[in-house]
Every structure is written in C-alpha cells, then in structure tokens.
Design a protein around this nucleic acid. Structure first.
Lengths: 339, 339
DNA sequence: AAAACGAATTCAAACGTTTGCACTAAAAAT
DNA sequence: ATTTTTAGTGCAAACGTTTGAATTCGTTTT
C-alpha cells in the first residue's frame, strides 16, 4: 500500500498534523494560504482520508451489515436495492453476507459484523436458523446494542425490529382469487417447513378455504424449496392422480414456473384446466408464458423501510423495536384469466 | 454501543491490556490460570474483538470492495456467489456497491472503498463509465496500489487484471448455430453502445455472418438495454415489416424473453418460423417457454476466478495484472430445435 | 551466596485522525 | 505604552489492539 497520511503532509510542510487535518476539513481557524497549499498537495499526492482511524475515534463505522440467505431471487435483489437507496446518499457502505440458508454461516457472519463494528444489522434469517431456533447470535447483537432489523423473514421472538410483508393476507388474497375464479381443488406448493413465511402463507391459504367451506386436502399441500426444480416432482404426482387439482397456489413465483413446466409437458391448459397464482411478482412473471398472476411483495419497499427503521434506531440512544407489516396486493394475469 | 474492551477486562483483573490480549489470543507465554479466567470472563461479558483497531494496526481490513452496475440480473448474483465462495472461508468480508450504471456513483463508491482501505476491489464497470471513458478513479486505485480486478466487463486500458467471458466467441457460436439450423436472416438485439461487451458480441455475430457469406442487414441490428422491456419495440418493428428475420440472437437472455413475448402475441412459431439464441444461461431459461437456447457465461466461475486473482495480487508485493478470458459454450434447447 | 535462568507480566510505541486547550505573535483597543 | 483581542498553530490525549523489549520475581544452578 502506498498510504500517504496526514503526518506525511505535516512533515512535508513542517507543520503539525492538526494543522493539516484542519486544512483538509475546511476548519474555520486556518490560514487560507496554508489551507490551499495543503489541499493542493493532498490532491496531487492522491491523499485519501483513512476512515478506519476515524471509525476507531468516533465509534461509528458508517457501515451496515446485511445478511441474507441467498441472492438468487429477484425479490432479494430488489430488497437490496431498497436498502441501498436509503444508505447510499447518506454515505453508508453495505457489508454483505450470504448465509446459504445455513445457521453456522449466519452465526459466523454476525460475529464478524459485530467485530467489524457495523452501525446496524439487517437480517433475513436462514432456514436452518428458523428450524433449530437457536438465536444466540442475535443475543450478542442485542448485548452490543447494535440496531437489528429483521427483513422479509421475521421470527416471533423479540430480538429487534422487523419489516415484512403480510404473508397471511397475501396467501388469503391469492386463494380467494382462485376460489372466485371457480376453483375448488386448490393445491398449495408450500414453502420450507420451519420458516414463519411458509407457515403464514399456508395458514392464509387454509383459512381462506375454510371460510369458503372448502375442506383442504392434505395430499395437495407439499412443502418444497424456493426454487423451480423442487416444484417439479410434487406437481407431477398431483397430476398423475385420478383427481387433479384445478388450481395451484405457489409459495413464490419460482415454484410456479416449475409447475407450469410440468403442466405444459402434460398438455394441460392454463388457465382453462388449471389456474395458477404465485407470490413475489418477479420481473419475469409478466413475460412468462402464461403471464403469471401473483402477489406483489413490495420487496424494494421492504428494503427501504427496513433501512429507515435501522436509521431510526441508530439515532435514538434507547430505541424501541418496531414491527412493520406491509400489505401485499394481487396482480391478475393470464395464469388465472384467459385474455 | 456497549463496548467492552480489552482495557475493561484488564482493569477488572488489575493486569495490563497486553496480558489480556495474550490471554485471548492463546499466546504461548501466559499463565494457564490467567488465560482461562480471562477467556471465561470475556466470553461471559460478550467481548468481541474490535477489528477496526486491528485494521489500523495491520494496514489490512480483511474487506474486499465489490462494485457492480446492478444486481437485478441472475448472472450478477451468480458472479457474487462465486466471489463469496472464495472469500468467505478466508474471513474476508465483502463491501458491496451498486452503481446503477452511473459514472458519478462509481467514482463516489471507489473513493469510499479506498477511504475504507479495502484490501482489493473487484469492479464491473458501469455503462456510463464505458461511454465517457473517464477512468480517473481507477488511477486513484492504482496510486494506492490496491489490487483491482475487472469482472465481466473489461476496458481495453490496463488499470488492473480482468476476468471475462470470451464474448466474441460466444456470439460467434450462437450465430453459427443459427446458421447451421438453416437461418439466413438473423437479427441481433445488441447491447448498449459503448460497452465492450456489446461491441464484442456484435463483432462475433458480424464476423460469423461474413464467414458464411451472409451480408448483414443493418436494420436487423438494434442496440437495446439489458432488460426485457427494451427488446419489445425493436422486435415488433422487425416483424411488422415485409421481410421478417428468421432468427434472433439476443445480447442476453432477458432481451430474448422480451422478443419471445412479441412473437407469441403475433402467433409466430418458435423455432419453426423464428429461432432464438440468448446469452447468459439464466436459471429460468431452461424453464421458459420455449426453453431458451443460450450461451453459458460461467458467471459463478468468473466471480471465483476474479476473487482468486485478487488474492494472488494481494499476496505479491509487486503484482502484475493478468487478463483471463473464459470460453463460453452453447446450450441447445427448444428455441432453436423442436423437440 | 551469588549468578543465571525462566516464567509471567508490564511498558511503550505504533496505526491515522480529530479536537479541546494552550500557546504565540501580531493587531487592535485602551 | 500597556492591555486585550484574535488569528493561526501546536500539544497531547483518545479510540482498541498488538508486540518487541524490558522488568519483576521466584527458582535453579554453580
């Protein structure tokens, strides 16, 4: 490294580091000539202030830790953009960690983030963490009084604020839409077990069926991963049975893509024979064939709000955590309505 | 913040900070009782070492700056995963910046990264930077002797190493495949002007046509953005003309999705009337309708190699930059071949 | 009993910056 | 001519940690 420091500049001009510091920061009490000479020289030499030393001094790093289980899904990308939209202009930097849905990695990363003294942490918990329910790493965050905001995937315990979509409501809306379209044999490609998100969407689906006096068929509820591939087998088995579903509600758009592939292979018409509703409103869904009816999850908005919430917490000395739940909405497209 | 420090522990046990430091780091010359007592206490109090102070001391932050134009595209997500796969296990953290294809943001973020003394920078340059060709911010990086690796989008000037896909070859392969399928009126949805990537893919396409004695039609080359929407209009205009293309080579899979939507609306059969080849091999492409023939871009691999290259540079005191070009390959699916 | 050793600990400096306070010298007010 | 003001600069401490060198104190060797 070729680190030119304030001390170097001070030596060069035979003055004290304080003077250089003041010159560079446009301090009031500084001779205008001194200031200009120093600034010019600093510029020429490519001086870059060392934020590390400042962080040490100010006990604030102007960095935010962001922990997500993966970055494959577009809603995660959108959340991140929402987060960036808030922090970028304020000069914060984002430190990014991907847990691959693993508890151990989540713990490890939280540790590193704390060690790096990030000013706040936004986290979408991993599946494994949700399953084994070991939240000790969040205890550490609380001990350090580092603002913690759960995004997208909440836990019921109160370790921090949270900003999530109303999954129950979204699922209810989706199911209701299918029922209104005349479907009665509605299957559900549910999310991974253990995740609150999956549970809430399943409940929304079940309650909606019940409220419309449709008794659920447990064969038509399969827990899958959040990807295309894992939806293939369950869908196949449903449609190879005698009594076929007449609709599928998928825990996200991806599993619906998988289901659609199976149905296309079997020459089953969508939406004439089977209607499909997803969840997320991926950017590709309006261009998929068939254009996918789905629930908009407001990913960008969630990221934005979570970021703002963390700033809020950052500004108060003794913050109170807050749970925000956003309302999703239905977007009707060709997979439930022939155009 | 509730920062318990080494000094605090030292006070508690009436010993010096050095002793505590050595106890915590399992130093050789330390009384075993002292060590255990201190470690126990540190554990209980939730002591977390302050990496900031260490960074200051060691002149290494164990952080890597990653600069990308956007995070909407799956190949970017995959690149990032490739990068993570290398750095995670080594204890490095990634600081992430999105430039939104803007030059000013790119400059600002580079400045911040340098100021934060990241150990290396991986960057996929923004469109605007490529267009206006102002690379002064990379000069600053070089001045600081911070390892710099261009990923995915290179520039011809030599500011650092680079790891990219062989865009020319990919485009050539794609075009050749279309020609072999009997297509002669091959249109190209080209990438944004100014980007080397776009230029190389266009050249590969043109050269392949030439080598097969097909004279290119400039009407059938349109520069578009890397998204679905911007492909719509150009495709429409092509297929509303008298002489229609019999194939489309898209600069990435997204623009092909857009083109497919137009063709479906016009009831034009793929691949019978029009064949389509994309570039990127998005995870959705094998599940799109029609399943998209495309060029695999080895995104994960590119990220991985770039990360390794930066480590290489980091380890040598006077590194030499290196340009790696990976060979892409063709994946044939339904959009060029009826099943 | 003196010298040598060794284990355990402390000291002090270093990393780069900021900032309240003290200081100097010159200018202004008395 | 003396005092007061003021502009400009320097000093030193602080942030948290590590580490080579120095120190202490008890034990072993001669």
């Amino acid at each position: 490294m070729n680190n030119i420091t304030i001390k170097d500049i001070a030596k060069r001009f035979k003055c004290s580091p304080s003077t250089v510091s003041r010159a560079l920061n446009d301090h009031a009490k500084i001779n205008i000539d001194t200031r200009e000479t120093i600034q010019e020289y600093a510029q020429k030499m490519g001086y870059q202030k060392n934020s590390i030393s400042l962080s040490l001094l100010n006990k604030s790093t102007k960095t935010i830790g962001v922990l997500v289980p993966s970055i494959n899904h577009s809603h995660e990308a959108q959340m991140i953009q929402g987060i960036q939209s808030v922090f970028d202009s304020l000069g914060y930097m984002l430190i990014f960690c991907v847990t691959n849905e693993q508890h151990s990695l989540e713990q490890e990363h939280i540790k590193r983030l704390l060690s790096n003294r990030v000013d706040a942490i936004l986290v979408s918990i991993s599946q494994e963490t949700a399953n084994i329910r070991d939240f000790s790493h969040f205890d550490m965050v609380n001990k350090r009084k580092t603002p913690l905001v759960f995004i997208d995937r909440d836990i019921v315990e109160n370790y921090g604020s949270s900003v999530v979509i109303d999954d129950y409501k979204g699922a209810y809306l989706a199911t209701k839409h299918l029922i209104e379209k005349g479907c009665r044999r509605i299957a559900h490609l549910a999310g991974p077990e253990g995740l609150l998100v999956s549970k809430l969407r399943l409940e929304g689906y079940l309650d909606c069926l019940k409220n419309h006096e449709i008794s659920p068929n447990t064969d038509w509820i399969k827990h899958v991963e959040f990807n295309i591939e894992s939806a293939i087998e369950p869908t196949k088995s449903w449609f190879q049975s005698e009594v076929r579903p007449d609709a599928i509600f998928g825990v996200n758009d991806y599993v619906c893509y998988g289901a659609v592939n199976v149905l296309m292979d079997m020459d089953i018409k969508i939406p004439e024979e089977v209607s499909i509703v997803g969840f997320d409103n991926c950017p590709i869904s309006p261009y998929f064939f068939p254009k996918l009816t789905t629930i908009d999850r407001k990913s960008f908005e969630i990221g934005r709000l979570a970021a703002q919430q963390s700033l809020e917490m950052l500004s108060k000395d003794d913050f109170i955590s807050e749970k925000s739940i956003l309302s999703p909405y239905l977007i009707i497209r060709d997979s439930t309505q022939s155009s």
